[in-house]
Design a binder for these strands. Structure first.
Lengths: 238, 238
DNA sequence: CTACGCTAATCATCATACGATTAACAGTCA
DNA sequence: TGACTGTTAATCGTATGATGATTAGCGTAG
């Protein structure tokens, strides 16, 4: 229900900017006008702007107004920022960079998970896999279950920086689900590979774990590279 | 000069929290009291708090007050957050995680830099190396020059997520400078390896580049693992 | 053409008031 | 007793209006 005026204003402004309604370098409306437009006081607007400044999306100054910063300056690991970006379909170069990042990070995370996972975390990975297995038919739940599965593996790596990447990598998984949703058998086909990864962690077999991880990434890469431009194009049309 | 009340309040609060003056889970003073203590209005305090909430360090709620979140929730790639943390000496597990991250990220970044660097970026790397060479004797400039050198390599990798890691990896370089400053010959000794890395990028020789990078990391790792506990201990004493 | 100072636009800060939410407590009823 | 429910007070949330501070942009003088 009722999130605060502050929260909704931040959200509105954030996705408005992420959607590219104002280009980097341009300034948004003055505080008073914005407040009037959204039906909230200048106080709320100012606090919302402070929030977005803290996330690197805006920059303010007297006389100059409130300016949108280039995407390079945004905190791309911030969950909200990632959320706003993916809401409108990730920009293509964003997806490419994420693919590279995932290729670098995730196999290493699996290796560390094999070495360092606690018994509870191994159990959690197994449970997450079971959920994934159940979700494979029910369509919409699959994406959530897939993200949860990968998230608990990243958590098992015991590296706080890896954990910070969860939202960003999650956005990539969402894309990868979106593009392979056209072909539901794909999900069933990758299920054994997921299981392999989970079992490898339980067995602390990092070689097998890394192999499974890289196989999954290869699959996703291929699917995304083949279909993503099409998805983007169809989104533009709607 | 005079930065704004907002900026100084954010900075004061941020480093106060990062220094562990209030533990995660505890609440800070109520807005009105904090304002009185710092000699600013409640408006300024509230906007500062909003900034820290946006960075994941705080959580607020009516009646419950303003609570410090566990470090795991902080935006560890945020330049300010990293700054506040390193101001008080990075926690040991933080350094360990950064070492792992660097081992994973930087060699790959060098590889990409070899493949993708523009002529301007290759030039920039060379210039940064020259600056490093000049700074090796002048002590205090060395750290800055070293960070600039590594930063422009990371930038040459053409991956926006890698670029977001610059502040965090920079903090590690600062630590690594701190511990090897006891032994100034070390700096001169690693200079040729830096040069090797720069030249490899110019020659687009990723094998040699990655090798140089890993050698540098090995050196830094060793120095940090040997000396960091001592540095921490001596800081505590002061 | 340059340098300097003016002006107006915009944000920064403050003080105050009242509304909204909710944790904690107290009281009620089975 | 123990669980439920209503009350209350602490704290944040929002609004308003006034005044101060900063500076981009322009106009003017040298």
């Amino acid at each position: 229900m009722s999130s605060s005026f502050h929260a909704s204003t931040v959200d509105w402004l954030g996705s408005w900017i992420a959607a590219g309604q104002v280009k980097p370098g341009q300034t948004i409306k003055v505080e008073a006008d914005l407040g009037e437009q959204l039906g909230v006081s200048r106080t709320v607007i100012r606090e919302a702007i402070k929030t977005l400044v803290a996330k690197g999306m805006l920059e303010v100054g007297p006389k100059v107004g409130t300016r949108v910063l280039p995407v390079r300056r945004w905190n791309l690991f911030d969950p909200q920022v990632v959320g706003w970006l993916s809401r409108n379909g990730l920009p293509e170069n964003f997806v490419d960079d994420l693919l590279d990042l995932r290729r670098t990070i995730e196999p290493m995370a699996v290796r560390w998970a094999c070495e360092r996972a606690t018994p509870e975390q191994i159990e959690a990975v197994q449970l997450a896999f079971n959920a994934l297995e159940r979700a494979v038919d029910s369509g919409i739940d699959y994406n959530r279950a897939d993200q949860a599965f990968h998230e608990c593996i990243l958590a098992a790596s015991h590296n706080q920086f890896i954990e910070q990447m969860v939202p960003a990598l999650g956005a990539l998984l969402a894309v990868s689900f979106e593009v392979s949703a056209a072909d539901p058998d794909e999900l069933r086909r990758t299920l054994p590979i997921h299981k392999d990864m989970a079992d490898a962690i339980a067995a602390r077999d990092s070689t097998r774990g890394v192999w499974a991880c890289m196989t999954l990434i290869d699959n996703a890469d291929l699917a995304i590279k083949r279909f993503y431009p099409k998805v983007m194009a169809s989104k533009k049309a709607s």
